[in-house]
Design a protein around this nucleic acid. Structure first.
Lengths: 212, 212
DNA sequence: CGTTCCCGCGAACATCCGTTCGGACGGCGC
DNA sequence: GCGCCGTCCGAACGGATGTTCGCGGGAACG
C-alpha cells in the first residue's frame, strides 16, 4: 500500500475520530476546520488521494459521502446471527424457515461475516456441557450452525432426538442401519439410535467463546 | 417505549438498511424517495417523532445528522487487529508501542470489538503447534493479546525466551525464584527458566479459529 | 357542527456542501 | 533557467439539504 503524506494521515485520523464520535462522516468543511486547513479544495484533493490509495470510498456529489475502508481496502460487514437458545436444553429448537427465520430469537450475536463462512440463514446456539470438548467446543461457547436436513458422516450436527425430546451437538455416523452420535469427549459414550428417531437441525460452522 | 406509527416504523427500517449499505445516514430526501413520501416535511415531522421517542438522535442543521440509537440500532464496531506474526516462530516479536504500534503489521484481522474485550492496542498472533490444546487453543488459531509487561500466576502469556530467541504461548507461574512455563498439553513438559531470561510480551485475551 | 389533534402536502428559503478553476509555491531533473 | 509535478490557496458556482409555514383531510370528542 502506498505511503501517505502527513496531511493525509491527519485527515484519515480525523475521519476515524469524527465517525467514532458522531456515527456519521464529516463534511469537507468539517475536515477543513478539524485539521486546520485553509481551503476546502485541499481537503478534496487529499480525499481523492486517499480514495486512490484505497483507504476510503467516496460517493460523489453526496454530502458526507465518505466511507472508511479497512486494512486492505476491504469492508468487513457484520452479521447479526439470531441466538435461538441453548443446545442440550430440554426443548426442541424450532428450526428457522427462511422467511421468518429469526422472528422469535431472544437475542442476536453480532459477528464478522467470516464467522458464518458466507452461509445464509445461519443461527446460533449456546452450548451446555463439555461433550464436544475435544473438538475444542467448551461449555458456554456459542456455536454457529447452518440449517440443513442432511449431513455427511463425521459432521458435527445439532440433532433432535425425538424420544428424548432433546437437542444435542454431536458428530454423526451412519453404521449399518443405525445412527451413532459421537461426543468428542473420551469420558463419554456414544449414543446409538435409529434414523427415524433423529432429526438433523443444523451443521456446525464455527464457534466463539464469549468473555470469560 | 412508545408505539410507532407504520410510517415511523418504515422510516426506521429504511434508516437501518441505508446505513447498512452506505455506512453513512440518508438525507431527508433520500428517506423521502426510499419510503415513497411526497414531501420532505413529512419526513422531518416523523424524524422529530422518532427523536422524541428515543429511537434516533439528530444533529440539527447538519446534513445526514441522524444517529441510530437503541439495542438494535447500536452499531457493533469492527476493530482491525494487527496480525504481527506467528507465535513459536524463531524470531522475537517486536512488542508494539502505542504510537506506531501497527506500522509493520503484515495483515489485519477484522473482529467485533467484543473479541478485544475493550482493551486497546491489542495485537494478534497466529498459533503454531498444539501446546495449548487443553486450553482450547489449536494449531492455526489466532490469539489476541494485550501488550503487558507483567502478569499474574496462571495467566496465559506470550513470552520471549531470550536464550532460545523464541516467543511462545504458555501459562506462567513463579516458583521460588524461577519461572515455570506450563503448556496446556499433558503430553508436554513445562519449561523451567529464570526471570531474567523471559520477557512477557502480552497477555491472552481471546482467540478465534479461522475457516477450516 | 365546532374544536382539537395527528398526519400529510407543497412550496419557498437559507444554508450547507461538493466541485471546479485559476493561480502560486517549492522540490526535482534536465 | 525551464518545465514538470505534487501540494496548497482563495473564491465562486450550483446543486443538495434541513427547516419553516400555510393549508387540508380525517378521526375523536364534546
Amino acid at each position: 500500500m502506498t505511503t501517505l503524506s502527513p496531511r493525509q494521515q491527519q485527515i484519515l485520523e480525523f475521519l476515524r475520530a469524527f465517525i467514532e464520535e458522531h456515527d456519521y462522516p464529516p463534511s469537507i468543511r468539517d475536515i477543513q476546520e478539524g485539521c486546520g486547513i485553509s481551503s476546502t479544495s485541499v481537503v478534496d484533493y487529499n480525499l481523492r488521494k486517499l480514495e486512490e490509495k484505497g483507504y476510503i470510498r467516496r460517493d460523489r456529489e453526496i454530502s458526507r459521502g465518505i466511507e472508511l475502508l479497512g486494512a486492505r481496502g476491504r469492508r468487513t460487514r457484520i452479521v447479526e446471527v439470531p441466538l435461538l437458545g441453548t443446545i442440550a436444553a430440554g426443548q426442541p429448537i424450532p428450526v428457522p424457515s427462511s422467511d421468518r427465520w429469526a422472528a422469535d430469537a431472544e437475542d442476536y450475536v453480532p459477528v464478522t461475516e467470516e464467522m458464518v463462512r458466507g452461509r445464509t440463514n445461519v443461527f446460533a446456539l449456546k452450548v451446555r456441557g463439555k461433550s464436544m470438548i475435544e473438538d475444542l467446543i467448551d461449555d458456554g461457547d456459542i456455536v454457529f450452525l447452518e440449517p440443513v436436513r442432511h449431513a455427511d458422516d463425521g459432521d458435527r450436527v445439532a440433532v433432535w432426538l425425538k424420544d428424548r425430546g432433546e437437542v444435542t451437538l454431536k458428530r454423526i455416523y451412519r453404521e449399518n442401519g443405525r445412527i451413532r452420535l459421537q461426543p468428542a469427549n473420551s469420558a463419554m459414550e456414544p449414543i446409538y439410535t435409529t434414523p427415524d428417531n433423529v432429526e438433523i437441525q443444523g451443521r456446525f460452522i464455527s464457534s466463539i467463546r464469549p468473555s470469560e
